[in-house]
C-alpha cells in the first residue's frame, strides 16, 4: 500500500515539470508575433523602397503584364508640389518615378507620411488649395477590380476594388490623389497622402491604365486593412 502511494507521489511530482513545459510552449504558441513596427519616420522611405524591385528580374512571371519599371527612388517631397513635411516631426515624403520601356513616358508615385492625423489634415488643406490654384480637382471613384484581378491576388483578404480619391489635372501633370487615414493599423493615427500621376503630360485618359497598374500593385496593402481611401479635402478630414 505504502509502495503504491509512493509510486503515485513520484508519478505526480514527475509529471509536473512536463505539464509546466507543456503549458509554457502552449502559452508561447498562442502569443502572437508582431506587429514589429518600424519607426514612424521610416515609412515613406520604406514604401518607396519596396516599389523598386518589380522590373529587376526579366524572368518575372507574376504578376503578369507589367510594363512599367522603376527608374528613380527619392527621399523628399515631390518637387512639383509644395513641401508638406517641413514642420511636422514625424512627417516624411518620398517618391518613385517609373518609365515605360521604349518610350519617354514617365509616371510618379509620391507619398507623404504623417504620424499625426491633424498634421495630415492641415497638409491636405494646404495641398488642395495649392492644387486648385494650379489646375482642376475633381472627386473620383476609381474602379480597380480589373487590375486587382489581373494581379492574381490569392490572399484571404480581398482588397477594396473601388477607391475614393481626387483627380488632379493641370497643364503639365494629371493624376490621382488619395488620402488614407489610419493607414498602418486602426489603432494608430498614421496617415498617407499619395499621388499617382503623369510627368510632363496631362492626358489622363491615355495614361490612366499605367497609373491604375501602379495603384493596384503598390498602394494596395495600405488600403487592405483600413478598407478605404478618401479624396483630398480643403478642410482636411479627421
Amino acid at each position: 500500500m505504502k509502495e503504491t502511494e509512493g509510486l503515485k507521489r513520484w508519478i505526480i511530482w514527475g509529471t509536473i515539470p512536463f505539464i509546466l513545459i507543456f503549458i509554457f510552449f502552449l502559452a508561447i504558441l498562442i502569443y502572437p508575433i508582431g506587429p514589429g513596427l518600424p519607426q514612424h519616420q521610416d515609412f515613406s522611405t520604406g514604401i518607396i523602397w519596396n516599389v523598386g524591385h518589380r522590373c529587376d528580374s526579366p524572368d518575372r512571371a507574376n504578376p503578369p503584364g507589367s510594363d512599367l519599371c522603376i527608374s528613380q527612388r527619392n527621399s523628399g517631397n515631390y518637387p512639383q508640389f509644395p513641401s508638406l513635411t517641413q514642420t511636422a516631426g514625424y512627417a516624411t515624403a518620398s517618391h518613385a518615378v517609373f518609365r515605360k520601356p521604349g518610350t519617354n513616358q514617365t509616371r510618379v508615385f509620391a507619398i507623404w507620411y504623417f504620424e499625426n492625423s491633424g498634421e495630415c489634415g492641415n497638409s491636405e488643406g494646404l495641398l488642395s488649395r495649392y492644387l486648385k490654384a494650379q489646375g482642376q480637382l475633381t472627386p473620383v471613384s476609381l474602379d480597380l477590380s480589373r487590375e486587382i484581378q489581373s494581379w492574381n491576388y490569392a490572399g484571404g483578404q480581398a482588397p477594396p476594388s473601388t477607391l475614393e480619391g481626387t483627380v488632379f489635372e493641370s497643364n503639365d501633370t494629371a493624376g490621382y490623389f488619395f488620402v488614407i487615414k489610419k493607414a498602418v493599423m486602426p489603432s494608430r493615427d498614421d496617415c498617407f497622402i499619395e499621388y499617382f500621376g503623369l510627368i510632363g503630360e496631362n492626358n489622363l485618359s491615355a495614361g490612366s491604365a499605367d497609373l491604375r497598374q501602379i495603384i493596384a500593385l503598390e498602394g494596395n496593402p495600405w488600403y487592405l486593412f483600413t478598407g478605404q481611401t478618401g479624396p483630398l479635402s480643403e478642410q482636411g478630414r479627421e
Binding site: V51, A61, N62, P63, W151, G155, Q157, P159, E218
Partner: peptide, 16 residues
C-alpha cells in the same frame, strides 16, 4: 519563378 514577389507577395502571405 512563378511565385510572386515584392508587395503582392507580402499581401498574399498576410492573407494566408
Amino acid at each position: 519563378p512563378n511565385l510572386p514577389r515584392d508587395t503582392p507577395l507580402i499581401n498574399e502571405l498576410a492573407g494566408y
